[in-house]
Amino acid sequence: MAEQMNGPVETGAAMDYSEHDKTYSMFLAGAKYGTIAVVSLLIAMAVYFFTGAGAITGLLTFLILSIGGSILAR
């Protein structure tokens, strides 16, 4: 029969909670700004492909939306 254990089998190393918080904050920032960049890119592509605005206007749309979204997200 198996031995009966009382308490945790392994307690493991002490957790570095400040490092966990830094990693989580970096993940959230990457997700937030990555989403802003992808949405800006999709809108700029729609402006370029589906209107007669041209490539320069699509690029300007991307830049304006990316910068404006980053400022609003802070």
Rank of each mutant, 00 (worst) to 15 (best):
E10R: 07
G30N: 11
A46I: 02
E10W: 04
I36W: 06
I67G: 03
Y17W: 13
G52H: 10
A53T: 00
M15R: 15
T51L: 00
Y48K: 11
V38S: 09
A2T: 10
S66W: 07
G12Q: 03
T57E: 15
A2Q: 14
G54A: 11
A2F: 10
E10L: 07
A31L: 15
E19H: 13
A13T: 08
I67K: 01
A46F: 07
Y33S: 05
G12K: 09
E10T: 06
A55P: 01
M5N: 15
G69Q: 07
L63S: 13
D21Q: 12
M1Y: 08
S40N: 05
L59E: 09
I67F: 09
L41Q: 07
T51H: 01
L42M: 15
A29W: 01
M1C: 08
I67W: 00
T11N: 13
Y48S: 09
Y48C: 03
S25F: 00
I56W: 12
L65R: 03
L65V: 04
L59H: 09
G68R: 04
T23H: 10
M1G: 14
M26D: 12
G12L: 04
S25N: 14
D21I: 14
D21H: 04
K22H: 09
L72C: 08
K32E: 11
G58W: 02
L72R: 12
I36C: 10
Y17K: 12
S18V: 08
E3W: 04
Q4K: 14
G30E: 03
T23Y: 06
V9C: 01
L60I: 09
A46G: 10
F50H: 13
V39Y: 01
A55L: 12
L42V: 14
G34V: 00
K22W: 12
E10P: 02
T35R: 04
H20W: 06
M26V: 01
A14L: 07
S40T: 04
F49A: 13
L60P: 01
G54Q: 05
A44G: 06
L72N: 07
M45Y: 06
F27L: 14
N6P: 00
F50N: 13
A53Q: 03
P8Q: 13
A14I: 05
L65E: 07
N6I: 14
T23I: 12
A46P: 00
S70Y: 02
E10D: 14
Q4N: 12
L63Y: 05
A2R: 10
L41T: 15
N6E: 11
M1L: 08
A55I: 10
M1K: 11
L65D: 05
L28C: 08
N6Q: 09
L60G: 09
V39N: 03
K32V: 11
A73F: 05
Y24E: 12
M1R: 06
V9H: 11
E3K: 13
T35C: 07
A55F: 09
A55N: 04
G52K: 14
P8I: 03
A55G: 02
T11Y: 10
P8H: 04
V9T: 13
T35Y: 08
T51F: 01
I56G: 09
V47S: 06
V9K: 12
T35K: 09
F49Q: 15
I56A: 15
V47Y: 00
Q4Y: 05
